[in-house]
Design a protein around this nucleic acid. Structure first.
Length: 497
RNA sequence: GGCGCGGUAGCCAAGUGGUAAGGCAGAGGUCUGCAAAACCUUUAUUCGCCAGUUCGAUUCUGGCCCGCGCCUCCA
């Protein structure tokens, strides 16, 4: 059973396999660190995270490279407004982005690279393009890529440029006034007053948008690699330009497989600041939503489908996560009769088989989720009828573990993450944005698991002695600290609110 | 205008040429010192509309209506 993945380059679903052995070498476009990451950014990063987790579960070794774009127009503009060097400005948002990745359970790529630390490599790249006659310098010192030297231009985004009128100098953009062809794109921008600039072998200036990805991808992955991913908007012009400059240089296929994640909608509309439906991850947490709810909602719709991100959906996802966690808790805390039931063991096998078959089908996460909920329902029903035996439980927990290797929502770390965001909001003077629900969720972060267990034991002891006054008091104490204690016929269990 | 995607129960959403996964919400029930929760059962004669192909279409073809995306350094 192999992974079938849609390839934007061919426009078809193809079996995905690395070119060399067991190692998958891939590149995913990372963030431009000019602001806090928003929920749309994270749909893409979560989708790539599901891919990498699934590849690893499938036995592949990974070399995943992600760039941090820490120099661009917006960064320069914003840093200038604040009167700080761009490095000071970007460091803060890069740090925030890394924290947000952790909050959402997104794994770190094997290699994270900053654009500003690869300037020399980019200049060398452009020099080589110039040597090949596909790059030219204009009078102001900027460098451009000559599109008409790359006949395959448009092959990824399926744009047909044949017959297009390409007169030079048609546009008088400040940055582009001397291009030979309207389609030519900037490889290198000449220095301007008040802008960051580097001295390089091709002259002073700063890199254009696309050159960083080609340069860093080749540095860490080689001239040709397995897969390149990013948001759908990057297909054109960004990825198209990466292909043009890279393949012009090497004559080899740049990335064999391209994956593009579709944009999400927020409350049925394109997310935009003017519509007032623009949310960063931190906004959502401060409004009272758990990171795990957000992650599940983001993964519940396959990456090539438009996802409608709604607050109602967030509530639904929160409840779904609850159900999954409760099931796991039941498996872990109940007492079981000795023995084994082949029927139950088979349920675990089936669930994982179906989950993997679904993910193999172009990462159909919605269907994979259904397989796990089937397991939850079937095993719960079996347990209600006393059909689950002691020896069946490890197989079920293993299945849940396999599920969580991909979806990463079972382990409850919400309180700690929420707490960190509350602390951040206070430090930033955003106190008024913190909702009561958020505070409630953060509460239990003050208690470690061991501390909770201690109190739970105290409660159970008192309860066993039928000292209900005392047991209730302990339960109330826990609740006040954000921990819910439940007595069920299967035993006592607790969870964070 | 060019290219592309989608319209499935109250909401989110999968899927197949043979008659509709899953989740959430709702309803009923079980359990329980109290709480709270949990669990179980149940919920679309029907898949935007109209034709066509077919023994049979939600699934294929054509048309129409509606929503959405990219084509402007926004993931």
């Amino acid at each position: 059973m192999a992974l079938d993945l849609f390839n934007s380059l061919s426009g078809r679903i193809e079996e995905f396999a690395p070119a060399e052995g067991n190692k998958v070498r891939f590149y995913a476009c990372g963030p431009t660190v000019y602001d806090y990451g928003h929920i749309g950014n994270f749909r893409t990063f979560v989708a790539v995270d599901v891919l990498r987790r699934y590849l690893r579960q499938s036995g592949f070794e990974l070399m995943h490279v992600m760039n941090i774009t820490d120099v661009d127009d917006k960064i320069i503009r914003n840093a200038n407004q604040r009167g700080v060097p761009i490095g000071d400005y970007t460091r803060k948002f890069e740090q925030a982005f890394m924290e947000d990745m952790g909050t959402l359970g997104i794994e770190q790529p094997e290699q994270i690279s900053r654009a500003t630390e690869h300037i020399a490599g980019m200049a060398r790249f452009i020099r080589k393009l110039a040597d090949k006659g596909v790059a030219y310098q204009t009078e102001d010192g900027s460098w451009y890529f000559r599109i008409d030297k790359f006949p395959e231009y448009g092959k990824l985004s399926k744009k047909d440029f044949a017959g297009m009128i390409v007169d030079g100098g048609g546009r008088m953009d400040a940055d582009e006034y001397e291009k030979d062809d309207a389609r030519d794109f900037a490889l290198w921008k000449a220095p301007k007053e008040g802008e960051a600039s580097w001295e390089t072998e091709i002259g002073p200036g700063r890199p254009g948008w696309h050159i960083e990805c080609s340069t860093m991808a080749m540095e860490y992955l080689g001239e040709s690699f397995d897969l390149h991913a990013g948001g759908e908007d990057l297909m054109f012009p960004h990825h198209e330009n990466e292909i043009a400059q890279s393949e012009s240089l090497t004559g080899k296929t740049f990335a064999r497989h391209w994956m593009h994640v579709r944009f999400l909608l927020v409350e049925g509309q394109k997310m935009s600041k003017s519509l007032g439906n623009f949310y960063t991850l931190r906004d959502l947490v401060l409004m009272g939503h758990k990171p795990s709810s957000i992650r599940l909602l983001l993964t519940s719709v396959p990456y090539r489908k438009q996802l409608n991100f709604t607050f109602d959906g967030l509530t639904q996802s929160a409840n779904s996560v609850e159900r999954l966690r409760n099931f796991k808790l039941r498996m872990e805390t109940s007492t079981w009769e000795p023995g084994a039931n082949a029927e139950v063991a088979a349920m675990a096998q089936t669930a994982i088989g179906e989950m993997r078959a679904s993910l193999n089908d172009d990462l159909n996460t919605a269907q994979a989720l259904a397989a796990i909920f089937d397991l939850v329902r079937d095993v719960n029903a079996a347990a209600d009828h006393g059909k689950v035996k002691k020896d069946d439980v490890p197989a079920i927990l293993t299945a849940l573990g396999k599920f969580d290797e991909i979806f990463a929502v079972l382990k409850d770390e919400d309180a700690a993450h929420v707490k960190a965001i509350v602390d951040w909001a206070r430090a930033e003077g955003l106190e008024e944005k913190i909702s009561p629900e958020t505070l409630e969720m953060a509460k239990s972060a003050a208690l470690s698991d061991a501390q909770v267990e201690e109190l739970v034991a105290k409660h159970s002891e008192a309860r066993k002695a039928k000292d209900f006054k005392k047991s209730d008091a302990v339960r109330d104490e826990l609740l006040a600290q954000g921990v819910v204690l439940e007595n069920t016929k299967d035993g006592v269990r607790w969870k964070r609110k």
